[in-house]
Design a binder for these strands. Structure first.
Lengths: 163, 163
DNA sequence: CTCAGTTACTTGAACTCTCAATCTCTACGG
DNA sequence: CCGTAGAGATTGAGAGTTCAAGTAACTGAG
């Protein structure tokens, strides 16, 4: 609808460049760290964490996908892999025969406790140890805003017809 | 060396969670946007941009990899694909027979000019339009710090034996 | 000059992710 | 009840990424 593209200002370009670079390097760094120390990529680790935090260490597939911000398809493949490792198992949902629970096994929990300290350290060294408390706070606010704007379907998506 | 893991505080956990969520959603969003409108993932688009900005629209493979913060291997595969699309071509480096230039073709440049406005819009809508000028500035500073900390080998990496 | 070490880049296989089906089951208006 | 729209989850194929290994060419100490 808008003919004339609003380019990024020089300022904005620098910000965007820094973001892309940091995000790329960081994800890469954590992927390697976890692949080396825990035998799985960062996303998979995140799945185990979500399960560990959940009541009875279990979550419906769709819910887990929503929390982790990934597609159900991706989750299916991921859980299949984690199941092969013995870190997660599936169980049918009694109340909905279509449903499946992903459940963190004891072995999965063990991997997590064994590798969590190292991972936290990596995150600290890469991010928190380098930022002032104000910057940390600011980062949280900023990323929360961005995340909210990209949420697939807002809960109270009011008046969508107004944009 | 440190026995006692320094966990993230509740504050820090929230920040980290927001970061992961936003970064995941954002990369996903831009990947889809570019796959749909330009027929390539976000990283590949970034490669074309780097080339477009370079003198004579060309860059040595290693340099391109360094700018884009990806491995040479990944770049090799990526350029192979972009070559198939006719958006990039390779040329031998005369002064170093091991070397290769990746060169943006006219067709590649055309794709870029055709799709850049839409991409900029997507970035604006997802990020810049939602942040105050102070937040934008802050984001830039924060990400620059993080990126610098993860750079494979610092130029003046002084006294690495002291950590 | 020479050859051991390094740099530039590529390759193939294993793994992960995406996208478009597909399948089963639930919900519900008629 | 029946029929069907939609939800929950999986699958397979194709695309992308990683890791380890490989080739070829440069570099420099001796």
């Amino acid at each position: 609808m808008n003919d004339d593209p609003r380019w990024l200002s020089d300022q904005e370009q620098l910000v965007w460049r820094s973001y892309i670079e940091a995000a790329t390097l960081l994800e890469d760094h954590l992927d390697r760290q976890l692949q080396r120390d825990a035998g799985m990529p960062h996303v998979y680790y995140g799945l185990l964490v979500k399960l560990a935090e959940s009541p009875r260490r279990r979550l419906r597939m769709t819910e887990l996908a929503r929390y982790a911000k990934i597609t159900r398809s991706r989750l299916s493949h991921a859980v299949a892999r984690l199941e092969k490792n013995g870190w997660v198992r599936r169980e049918d949902c009694p109340s909905d025969k279509r449903g499946q629970f992903a459940i963190l096994t004891d072995e999965g929990y063990a991997v997590l406790s064994r590798t969590a300290p190292g991972h936290v350290d990596a995150v600290r060294q890469a991010v928190f140890d380098r930022l002032t408390p104000e910057q940390q706070k600011s980062l949280g606010e900023i990323m929360r805003i961005v995340a909210e704007g990209l949420q697939p379907s807002e809960a109270g998506a009011d008046l969508p017809w107004l944009r």
